[in-house]
Write a protein that binds this DNA or RNA. Sequence first.
DNA 1: GTCTATATTGTGATAGAC
DNA 2: GTCTATCACAATATAGAC
Lengths: 203, 203
Amino acid sequence: MKVLDKNTEKKILDAAKTVFIKKGFDGARMQEIADEAIINKALLHYYFRNKDKLFDAIFSDAFVKFIPKIGETMLSQKHFFDKIKLLVESYIDMLTRNPHIPIFILHEINRNPQRIIQILSKGGANPEMIFKVINTEIKKGTIIPVKPQHLIVNIIALCIFPYAGRPVIQGFIFKNNNKTYQKFLKERKTEVSNFIINAIKKK
Amino acid sequence: MKVLDKNTEKKILDAAKTVFIKKGFDGARMQEIADEAIINKALLHYYFRNKDKLFDAIFSDAFVKFIPKIGETMLSQKHFFDKIKLLVESYIDMLTRNPHIPIFILHEINRNPQRIIQILSKGGANPEMIFKVINTEIKKGTIIPVKPQHLIVNIIALCIFPYAGRPVIQGFIFKNNNKTYQKFLKERKTEVSNFIINAIKKK
DNA sequence: GTCTATATTGTGATAGAC
DNA sequence: GTCTATCACAATATAGAC
């Protein structure tokens, strides 16, 4: 083996990530993954017994990225609006690096919601503390009364949708002009932050 | 044929809709569609020559629902904030009736973005007029300066995401409690309308 | 560990009787 | 129009040589 080569397992994982995220579990072909990794099918099965096991390796990794680290940011000691800005920025940064993750995760979870149950049972995020933070800000008078659940969903929705709905947005709103769509994406961080803060700040 | 029976074509279309929307094109099986329609595979191919043609019939129908009739509402003579409310309400009503459409459409378009091109070429919606309406409201001073493209995307995002991301939201935020998730959905119309209007109205 | 060849099953599609 | 039987090929998975 050449020294500069990635080891085979890594090559397989990279190839599988590309193909699974593009085609989904049902649309992906073991042959295509093998081709992408420049090996043959048999070797895939040598490293990962079957398609399911290979998929699981990809899915878990993608899922972690999909869930924003909302807790860390929200529990810090900054001003609430700065927390919002930071959360939006770091999440959009991740999405820019992994633009196809949202639709992949959403589709695969829809196909098999059981996965969520498994992940939750391993002890996932606890939103209660975040609800508390938001309710405290309401009492302090920083923001108007809003239901914490809705605020959180709104934040995630505004960050994710431009990526999950890319072809539709690019097609209908930007007439398939990729340049203006990319410009739109770059503006998103500040647009989303401002939109959220305007929506909840006390006048 | 019994008088009360739906005709076969309708039965097939209903069955195909159920299966395709749940599993996607790649995950759907002609056998499963036949079972759902309580007929056999051969009859499927008699009515629709192949899987692609059957899928296209389902997809076009779903896609029309997926794109909100944003034009009609926005060009009416109501107050701008009433237009927003109306748009949000009618779109969320549609999503409540067809909760699985968003993830289906988003995934299938991602799998084959070419579909968008085809639909656009048949002359789709024209967002220019909506941009104008929004810019007029900015000049009138009803709302603060916002980029129309972002406002439109924000509106759609806030409506769609609770449906596209249902398993994740229900799992993480509502601990898989279906009752509280349903309550959350019922609150959405007013929450989303208020959120948007707060975000853009001039103080 | 990596390959070629092959087994095995799944799946879309058709032929032909009724 | 509807059915049973079957074809043809695609796709996952394994056997076994090197």
